[in-house]
Design a protein around this nucleic acid. Structure first.
Lengths: 122, 122
DNA sequence: GTAACCCTAACACGGTCGTGTCAAGGTTCC
DNA sequence: GGAACCTTGACACGACCGTGTTAGGGTTAC
C-alpha cells in the first residue's frame, strides 16, 4: 500500500497533479498504473520527483532541457554531433569573448524578473 | 579581406542575416567586429555556421538546445546535477517502459508536420 | 554625396513550455 | 448508489523560440 495516487503524490512532492501528468508526458517520471489506469507513485518515484524539483530550482533549468539532456544521453549520434560541434572551437581565439555569451541567458532572466515584479506590484 | 559582412555570410551559409544575429545572441557563433561595429565573418565562423546548420537539421535540435548543451559543458555543477539525476534510475525496474517516453517528442513532431501540411495545402 | 550596406530596437506571428481549469466519463469506498 | 477520487481532452494564458520585417540612424565605396 506504499503507492500514492496522483493527488497524494502531488501533496508530498510539491508538484501539482497537473504537473505530475506533464512530467510523465515528458518521460521524466513515469509511474506504473493500476488495473483501472490510475497512476501509482511508489517511494522511488516520489524521491525522484523531489530531487527533480530541486534540480530545476537550483539550476534554473526547465523540464524540456532535462528531457533534452536525457535525449543526448540515449542517442549516441546526437551526443557525438553536439559534442563535436561544441569542441570545435575556432583555431584563432577570435570568437567568444568571455562574458559575452552570458548575455543571452541573463536577458531571459532579467525579463522574467521584471515580469514578476510587475505582478507583485499589482 | 577574407572576412564577410553579415549579408555575404548569410548568402554563403544558408542562414538569413536576421538569424546570423540571433545565432550570435545565443552565443553560438560570435564574429569579431570592425572598428565601426560591423560583424566580420572569417572562414572559421563560416564553417561553424555551416556545420551548425547541418547539426540542427540532421538531429532536429534547436539553437536553445545547443545553447543548453554548451551551458552544461561549461557549468560543472549543472552537468553533475543533471547527470546524477538522469543516472539515478529506479531501483526496481518499474519506471520507464521502453518506447513510452518517445511519445513526447514524437507528438511534437507530428503536430509540427500536421501544421506544415496545412500550409502546403493552402 | 548618394546608393548600398551595416547597426540596434521593435513589432508581429505561429509554435512550444509550464501551468491552471473545466468537461465528460470511469473507479473506489462507504 | 452517491461522494470523492481518477482518467483523458481541451481551452486559456503569458513567456520564450525562431523568423521576417520595418524604422531610424551610422558607414563604405564609388
Amino acid at each position: 500500500m506504499d503507492a500514492l495516487t496522483v493527488n497524494e503524490a502531488a501533496a508530498t512532492t510539491g508538484w501539482s497533479p497537473r504537473m505530475l501528468r506533464y512530467v510523465e508526458r515528458a518521460g521524466l517520471v513515469v509511474p506504473p498504473r493500476s488495473d483501472a489506469g490510475y497512476r501509482l507513485y511508489g517511494p522511488g518515484q516520489l524521491q525522484r520527483l523531489r530531487t527533480l524539483r530541486e534540480l530545476l530550482e537550483r539550476h534554473d533549468v526547465g523540464l524540456a532541457e532535462v528531457s533534452f539532456a536525457r535525449r543526448m544521453r540515449e542517442d549516441a549520434g546526437l551526443r557525438e554531433a553536439v559534442d563535436e560541434w561544441l569542441s570545435a572551437r575556432p583555431r584563432r581565439p577570435d570568437e567568444v569573448s568571455p562574458g559575452e555569451w552570458l548575455r543571452f541567458e541573463q536577458d531571459k532572466h532579467e525579463r522574467l524578473l521584471a515580469a514578476q515584479s510587475q505582478l507583485e506590484v499589482r
